[in-house]
Amino acid sequence: METVVKATNVKKVYGLKGSIYTALDDINLTIETGEFVGIMGPSGSGKSTLLNVLSTIDHPTSGDIFIDNTNLAQMNEDQLSAFRRDKLGFIFQDYNLLDTLTVRENILLPLALAKIKARDLNQKADKIAEQFFIDSILDKYPYQISGGQKQRTAVCRAIITNPSLLLADEPTGALDSRSATDLLECLKELNETDKTTILMVTHDAFAASYCKRVLFIKDGTIFTELVKGNTSRKNFFKKILDTLSVLGGNGNDFV
């Protein structure tokens, strides 16, 4: 199996002298192809910082990050943009769809930006939309569709470039439980059938239970790790809840 993400001794410090705040402290992390990894932790634990650093939106203070064996530290701004476009796919809590574009155009956007020949773009969009059950709303605008549909559009947009890594930041945060379940099933399906590597940040134990492996972060370090293995999703969910209670903090953070 190949390594998609390899982070060694990643450190992120905010602020200047006087009031220094360490968001990430010596993080070491490896994600293999086809994995579905969840990252959990209380508010302020550093999980979003970790995602930002891994997704190249933010730079680590020290340490190295390799994605597909490419060292992010050695890339300049433009290369990073191109890298994001070609290798990474993003799903955000608030969808981040462009309201001036139709659903189809939103999905196609990354391909268009990569200046890929337009000939079979539409078919591609149709196919991927069918997979996520949004083929009937392809020509609608984002303000005309529901939250769940929006998020599935966002997923389509994220995976249309066949990214090496799909990053999801609280993808179910703004969805009702029905839509959330649908979305998670989709992600699982994606991971199992297409072997897409997914890294998902969440504070929802239910969402995390769809992952194959869950990392717990506390005070900027990896506190522990749970692997699903052959346990059922329900049991895995319980395990996660147990770990969270051990993790401490305010339990209310994790429901």
């Binding site: 701004e77 943009s81 191109a82 890298f83 476009r85 993003f90 462009l98 309201d99 930006l113």
Partner: peptide, 13 residues
């Protein structure tokens, strides 16, 4: 909108 674009990998340029 431009923030979104930056996040999904469009360079400043």
């Amino acid at each position: 909108r431009y923030d979104i674009l930056r996040k999904i990998g469009v360079s400043r340029q």
